[in-house]
Simulated scan of single mutants.
Amino acid sequence: MNAIGNFIKENEYLICIDSDGSVIDTMTEKHKKAFGPEAVKVWQLEEIEEDFLKKWNKVNLYSHSRGINRFQGLVKTFNDLRAEGYGLPGLDQIEKWTVESSELSNPALSRAIKNTENNQQLKLALNWSRQVNQEISKLEKDSTKVFAGVKKILAEISAEADLAVVSSANQEALLDEWASYDLKQHVKVILGQEAGSKADNIRDLKAEGYDQNKTLMIGDAPGDLRAAQKNNVLFYPIMPCEEAESWQKFAEEAAAKFFSGDYQGKYEENLIKKFNFILK
């Protein structure tokens, strides 16, 4: 369930689906209750807490960098604030790792720490990430967090397409959430940050024998769109703040267009145009 090596193609169509913010309404909660507050604690930013959290939420939730990997989001938030004149600790070592590493996850960061002499920055980042995971595990699991219509549409499309969760979230949390919300039964594989980038995971899944016009990525962030475009596959946006409506539209018309071959072209282009406008 958590490795592409165990994936077996059964249908002609492949649909890759992001999790946080796309299927389950947990993205905002995780950032506001775990990611941002834990960064304030680890880097002792209490004096600028309000400004830091405002910038954190802007970078990770309310801009074109929405859905960015947690470590990249950390670096961008610090860099943006530093550019505005805030005296923040340097994250050059962490930034270097985010650029050079092929995998941005806790295990990959642990390996980098072992292979780096001056690794204090990396240790702080790992400590922060682990504390974030702990806080996320404490968040209440409420079935109402699954966006309206999702469970029904997943059950319906899983009869025609192989479904795969492709997310940058922590693998353990993903497995727990998809099981807790009774969604796991509809997907063939769940891939989190430990499995690699979204683009790489789509590439590897597509390589199982799917045509690019019969492969779709569903997501709520520009990174999901880029991952789809990098692999020349189709993209369906879950519009931020219009999630239930997006799933209703998918159920009523977009899914049928995808399966009939009428999705690519003007229809997809108009959806992406609206998506990009929302996140300008």
Rank of each mutant, 00 (worst) to 15 (best):
L61P: 13
F235Y: 12
K206D: 08
L279W: 03
K55P: 06
D18K: 02
E46V: 05
Q93D: 14
G5D: 06
R70H: 10
I278K: 13
F275N: 08
S168V: 00
E46D: 14
C16T: 11
P237D: 14
R226H: 13
N79M: 02
E103H: 14
A112R: 06
L45G: 03
I238L: 07
E268P: 14
A125I: 04
K58R: 06
D20T: 07
K184W: 12
G85M: 04
S102F: 09
K273H: 12
Q134N: 07
I15H: 01
I17W: 02
E47K: 15
G73P: 02
N106T: 13
G265P: 15
I272N: 08
K138P: 00
L122Y: 06
V150G: 00
T116R: 06
A155R: 06
K151H: 08
S102L: 09
Q44E: 15
S143G: 02
L122E: 04
N201V: 00
V166H: 03
V187Y: 05
I278E: 10
L175V: 12
K58E: 12
H186N: 12
Q229A: 04
G209R: 05
N127W: 11
V132A: 01
E194G: 02
L163W: 06
D162F: 03
I15Q: 09
V189C: 11
D220E: 03
E242C: 13
Y62F: 15
G261R: 01
S22H: 03
F71P: 01
E208F: 14
D142E: 07
W247F: 13
K41P: 06
D200T: 11
V189N: 11
E243I: 02
N57A: 05
S101W: 08
N6G: 12
E103L: 08
T77C: 07
T26S: 14
K138R: 09
R82Q: 10
F235R: 02
L109K: 02
F147T: 00
R66K: 15
K214M: 01
L183E: 05
A244N: 13
T215Y: 03
W178I: 03
Y86D: 05
F52R: 09
R70T: 08
E245F: 08
E140V: 07
D18T: 04
L91N: 05
E49N: 14
Q248T: 10
Q44R: 15
G73Y: 01
T116G: 08
L88Y: 03
K249S: 15
D176L: 02
